[in-house]
Design a protein around this nucleic acid. Structure first.
Length: 513
RNA sequence: CGGGGAGUGGCGCAGCCUGGUAGCGCACCUGUUUUGGGUACAGGGGGUCGCAGGUUCAAAUCCUGUCUCCCCGACCA
């Protein structure tokens, strides 16, 4: 409704890029650090990341993978071993060359020429090489396999163009690394990781994704095969939200990860790696955010329920706080979505209405305001962040269950918010995938003519090498990219939209982040 | 890294062309009045005008350099 006064000043449809930044600052998630491409993640944003870590880490552990930690610095030589890998990352590497500073003539500090490192260290952009180094020591026999490791860490890639959460020079992630006896087992592991990401994205982040294989030109540097989960943002662009790679034996060869098989022969391991990063937080924003700020799915919300007593700086406040505290305590004992409810009673001084809008912008799933009259009537005033407005009067849609009813209903309500956020994102995604385009001209026209083109699934002949490069160039002319080939895609029936040859598979084409 | 735009109290901006050492709205603090809901009145605090040089009697304003951010492009999770 046009008379709704939204909590943000910028609407998604007016300027999506600016809206994105506005959500980050209005929801108090992160801010600029003054260091190029690096951000300060504030408690609400970091709290969401911690929830992501927790839920994904549980899945990782359940899959029998062990956490470990490897150094942030990688010896340059170590990094040089895999040629494609080097070529892919060399141009965005931070390098450490000195270990000491000395005062210069102007009273500043400069690297001490005397303290130059004999061999420079690179700041890890990813850890295949250094973990491979460890694996080569840890794997001796076929009995040591499979070796399954994961680490939570920060990595640095010197990006040309950065955007908070989506692409920062330093970012936080998890990287899984496994070594296997043969290709089939390794591929299987890569697929397991992919499925783990799909489940995490859809069940925890409430973000529908397409799990599939990346075309050759989009592979991770050094990988034999790369899979991804791809999510559609509210502007119709695609976001790669997690990747899984079958690395063949190239890294094992480079790091000398070998094992002695049952027959006594030496074999190279087949390795796998997979990662999910703070970029997922950006995906969360662009999937669930609205014109009032962020909407956090209950599974990821640092606080799922926020209780705001309407304090008046008077003696009666004590009774009101007590009334609220009883609700808080009752909720804290209940479980939803497999965990105890996370509830915050916010008794800081300040107007409840002002605080309400803070939590609306932050996207707390349920906001409860309690005033003196609520207390007298034994009720509370409850807002669901996923259905904030009363469309008839353009005002916040307060529900007023009794305090007892609220405590009883909230666990199911949180489950409902979790699933309704997923459902609406999925409906939007499905409604914006176009199929049946068979001509390149029509494809170009589809993206040229529409303000919201979404994704197109086309049939193609999966060219490789130079012929693939030609196709990529064609797409680039329209700012389009290949996303992936869904693992559960329908069989093909026609000819390739790019080459005219018989089609081999269906691939998604979209603008992308 | 190329093209464009921008950096002035927490946020959003004006001032810069025509140099004379800062102003507005919101937020914040205090008081009053109120108060079932983002919206009262009055007073008040807070800014080396991104940073470094230069020109000048004098620089937020002019010049040079540099850092950071935003948009587009190339590159990438």
């Amino acid at each position: 409704m046009s008379n709704i006064r939204h909590a943000l000043n910028i609407k998604r449809q007016d300027d999506f890029a600016q809206w994105y930044q506005e959500v980050i600052s209005a929801a108090d998630m992160a801010e600029e650090s003054g260091v190029r491409g690096c951000m300060v993640i504030k408690p609400w944003g970091y709290g969401i990341w911690e929830r992501m870590q927790r839920l994904l880490d549980d899945r990782i552990k359940a899959a029998g993978i062990q956490n470990a930690y490897f150094p942030i610095f990688i010896p340059l030589k170590n990094f040089e071993r895999e040629a494609d890998h080097v070529e892919g990352f060399a141009k965005e590497m931070a390098v450490v060359t000195h270990h000491r500073l000395i005062a210069d003539r102007e009273g500043g500090l400069v690297p001490d020429p005397e303290a130059k490192l004999e061999e420079p260290l690179v700041v890890r952009p990813t850890s295949e090489t250094i973990i491979g180094d460890a694996m080569s020591r840890w794997v001796q026999s076929w009995r040591d396999l499979p070796l399954k490791l994961n680490q939570w860490a920060n990595v640095v890639r010197w990006e040309m163009r950065t955007r908070m959460f989506l692409r920062t020079s330093e970012f936080l992630w998890q990287e899984g690394h496994t070594a296997h006896a043969n290709a089939d087992e390794a591929r299987e592991e890569a697929m397991r990781a992919l499925e783990m990401y799909r489940a995490f994205a859809e069940e925890d982040v409430a973000m529908p994704v397409i799990a599939g294989e990346k075309p050759e030109n989009e592979r991770f540097p050094g990988a034999t095969e790369t899979w991804s989960i791809e999510a559609m943002m509210q502007d119709g662009k695609a976001l790669q939200a997690g990747t899984s790679h079958y690395l063949g034996t190239s890294f094992a060869d480079a790091s000398d990860i070998r094992y002695q098989d049952a027959e006594g022969g030496q074999q190279l391991c087949h390795t796998v790696s997979w990662g999910m990063s703070t970029r997922m937080v950006g995906g969360l924003i662009m999937t669930h955010g609205d014109d009032d700020g962020l909407r956090v799915p209950p599974k990821l919300a640092p606080h799922q329920v926020v209780i705001l007593p309407m304090l008046r700086d008077k003696p009666e406040d004590a009774a009101l706080i007590d009334y609220c505290e009883q609700l808080r305590a009752a909720l804290a004992e209940k479980w939803t979505l497999g965990e105890p409810i996370r509830v915050l009673l916010d008794t800081r001084p300040g107007k409840a209405a002002a605080k309400r809008w803070d939590y609306v912008r932050k996207g707390a799933p349920i906001i409860i305001e309690v005033g003196g009259r609520d207390m007298d009537n034994g009720v509370v005033s409850l807002l669901r962040r996923d259905s904030l407005w009363n469309s008839e009067n353009g005002k916040p849609a307060f529900h007023t269950p009794s305090r007892k009813e609220a405590a009883e209903q909230i666990p199911a309500m949180l489950e409902d918010i979790q699933s309704s956020l997923f459902a609406s994102a999925k409906d939007r995604r499905d409604a914006n995938i176009t199929r049946g385009i068979t001509e390149m001209d029509a494809l170009a026209e589809h993206f040229r003519g529409s303000r919201y083109p979404g994704w197109v699934e086309v049939e193609w002949s999966k060219p490789t090498g130079e012929s693939l490069e030609k196709v990529v160039e064609q797409l680039k002319a329209h700012k389009l990219t290949f996303r992936n080939v869904a693992i559960d895609a329908e069989p093909v029936s026609g000819t390739c939209i790019f080459t005219g040859e018989p089609a081999k598979e269906r691939i998604y084409v979209a603008r992308a982040y």
